[in-house]
Amino acid sequence: SSQSQGISSSSTSTMPNSSQSSHSSSGTLSSLETVSTQELYSIPEDQEPEDQEPEEPTPAPWARLWALQDGFANLECVNDNYWFGRDKSCEYCFDEPLLKRTDKYRTYSKKHFRIFREVGPKNSYIAYIEDHSGNGTFVNTELVGKGKRRPLNNNSEIALSLSRNKVFVFFDLTVDDQSVYPKALRDEYIMSKTLGSGACGEVKLAFERKTCKKVAIKIISKRKFAIGSAREADPALNVETEIEILKKLNHPCIIKIKNFFDAEDYYIVLELMEGGELFDKVVGNKRLKEATCKLYFYQMLLAVQYLHENGIIHRDLKPENVLLSSQEEDCLIKITDFGHSKILGETSLMRTLCGTPTYLAPEVLVSVGTAGYNRAVDCWSLGVILFICLSGYPPFSEHRTQVSLKDQITSGKYNFIPEVWAEVSEKALDLVKKLLVVDPKARFTTEEALRHPWLQDEDMKRKFQDLLSEENESTALPQVLAQPSTSRKRPREGEAEGAETTKRPAVCAAVL
C-alpha cells in the first residue's frame, strides 16, 4: 500500500463515540455579560531565545476518518491537505487489492476528492471536503458537486459515486458533537469551532446549510445566566432586550441578528466578523496607526449616533465590543453586545450600574441610586476607546495605585505619557480631550465629534464608502454560481449515467 503517514491498516477498528472529540476555545468574540476587562498594560515583551531549542513535538491529529468498508483504511489527519483517489500521487490511494476487485472500484476517479483545513476566524481551523469526481462525492447523502466544497462537521458520513455507498465517517477532533444542539438549529446550521467564551456562554462559528455562508452563533446558558443575574427581577429580559434591539436596528456599522432560537439555552445567530475584536488588534499591534484609528472611530461614531437617534444607549462600549470585518488594516467595524443597552424612556434617566469599570463615565460612578444619566455615557466610553487606539494603553487603570480607579475617572485625570502622545496629531488629542470631559453637559456629542476637524478627511470617508460598496456587492452575490457537472467518465454501479447527480441539489457548496 502507498498510504501516507497516519493511515492504519485495519478497517475493522472499533469506532469511538463522539464524546472523545476535544474542545477548543479562544478569547471572547462577544459576550452578553460584562466580565473583568482584559488588561492592556500587560503586553508581554519578546522573550530571549533559549540556548537549546526544544524538540519539535509530534503533531496531534486534528481529524480521524473511520473506514466503513473492507479495502479502505482508517486515517489520522495530521497534515493540512489529503487527496483521495486511484492515482498513485494521492496521499490516500485507493490501491488495496481487496478494493480493486470490487465492482465499485471502476466508478472512483483518479482524484476523487480531497479533505483539507484552512485558517478561519480567531486563527481556528475549518475542515472542508472538495469534490473532484465525475460520479460524485456525497456528505450525509447530499451531493457536494464537482469543483465545489463544503465544510465537514463531526460525524459526517462520506459516500463515493452513490449516496448509499458510504466509505468513511469523519471525526473532527477539535469540535463538539452536533447532537448536543437543538434540532431546529441543526436543521438550518452546521455548528463548528468555538470563537470565544464568557461567564454565561460562548460564541460558535457555524455555516448556513442552504448557502454555506459563515455566521456566529452566540449561545447563552439559561442556567448560568439565571445564577449570574439572580438580582434582576427577570434575567430573561436581558436576552430578550438584546434580541428586540438587534432586530430593529439596520446600520452597516451595527451587528445584524439573523436568527434566534429559544431552547434549553438561547441561541442568537449573528453575522460573522472575520477580523475578531478591536481589543485583540490593539494588543497585537501595541497601538494602531492614526489613519486606521480615524477610519475605525468614524464608523463607531456613525453607529452610536444611529443608536442615540433611535433612543438607544449602549452602556457597555469597549474594544471587546467592536468587531472587525476582516484581518486587513482597512476594514469595516461593527458594534455588538447589546445586553446592557437601554431604550430611552421619557425621563432619559437610568440608575442601574452596569458596564465595565474602566470605560464607565464619571456620572455613572457618582450617581448610583441618587440620580440618572443619559446618552453622554456612550460618548465618554468612545473617548476611552479612542485614547486606547491612539496610545496603546488605557487612560484609567486600577494599577495606578496612588489613585483609585473611581477617583481617576470622576476627576477626569487620565494617565498622559508625553513621549507616547508625541507621535499623535494635535487634532486627534483634542478630540480625545473633548470626549473625556467629566461634566456630561459639556462633553462632545456624537454629532459634535463628527464635525471635529480631525474627522474632516475626505480620503478616509471615501475609503469607508468603498468598503461599504464591497460589502454590499459580496452579500448580494449568490453563493453557488454554477451547477454541478453531469458529465460521466465512468458508469455508476447499477444505474444510468447522471441518474442521481442531477436530482440532488449541491447543498452548502461554494464554487472555488
Rank of each mutant, 00 (worst) to 15 (best):
I243R: 05
L246Q: 00
K247H: 02
H251S: 08
H251Q: 13
H251M: 10
P252I: 13
I254P: 00
K256A: 05
I257H: 08
K258V: 09
F260L: 08
F260R: 08
D262N: 11
D262E: 09
E264G: 06
D265I: 15
D265V: 14
Y266W: 06
Y267T: 04
I268A: 15
I268P: 01
V269E: 11
L270Y: 01
G275Y: 08
G275L: 03
G276T: 02
G276C: 13
L278W: 02
F279H: 06
D280L: 14
D280H: 04
V282M: 12
V283Q: 04
N285P: 05
K286L: 08
R287G: 15
K289P: 09
E290Q: 10
A291G: 11
A291Q: 08
L295V: 08
Y296D: 04
Y298T: 13
Y298S: 06
Y298C: 13
Q299E: 13
M300N: 02
Q305Y: 12
H308W: 15
H308E: 02
E309F: 08
N310G: 04
N310M: 15
N310Y: 15
H314Q: 06
D316A: 07
L317M: 14
L317A: 05
V322C: 07
L323Q: 02
L323G: 01
L323V: 15
L324A: 09
L324V: 09
S325Q: 06
S326Q: 02
Q327F: 10
E328N: 06
E328W: 15
E328D: 07
E329P: 10
E329I: 12
L332H: 04
L332W: 05
L332G: 14
L332D: 02
I333F: 02
I333V: 05
K334R: 07
I335L: 08
T336C: 00
T336I: 03
D337C: 04
I343A: 11
G345D: 00
L349Q: 15
T352D: 03
C354G: 04
Y359P: 01
Y359T: 02
L360P: 01
A361G: 02
P362C: 02
E363D: 06
E363A: 00
V364S: 03
V364C: 05
L365T: 08
L365G: 06
V368G: 10
V368P: 03
G369P: 14
T370R: 09
A371E: 05
A371T: 08
G372C: 03
Y373G: 05
A376C: 05
D378S: 00
C379I: 02
W380P: 01
W380R: 01
L382F: 04
G383E: 01
V384G: 02
L386G: 11
F387I: 02
F387T: 01
S391L: 15
E398T: 00
L405A: 00
Q408M: 06
T410N: 03
Y414A: 03
N415E: 01
F416V: 12
I417V: 06
I417L: 14
V420P: 13
E423K: 13
S425P: 10
L431S: 03
V432S: 03
K434N: 05
L435S: 00
V438A: 12
V438D: 00
P440S: 00
A442R: 03
A442E: 11
T446I: 06
A449Q: 09
P453Q: 08
R462S: 08
Q465S: 03
Q465V: 01
L467N: 13
L468V: 11
S469E: 11
N472T: 14
T475G: 13
P478Q: 02
A482N: 14
P484S: 09
S485P: 04
S485Q: 15
T486K: 05
S487D: 06
R488M: 10
K489H: 09
A496W: 08
E497G: 11
T501E: 08
T501I: 14
T502M: 08
T502P: 00
C508M: 10
L512K: 04
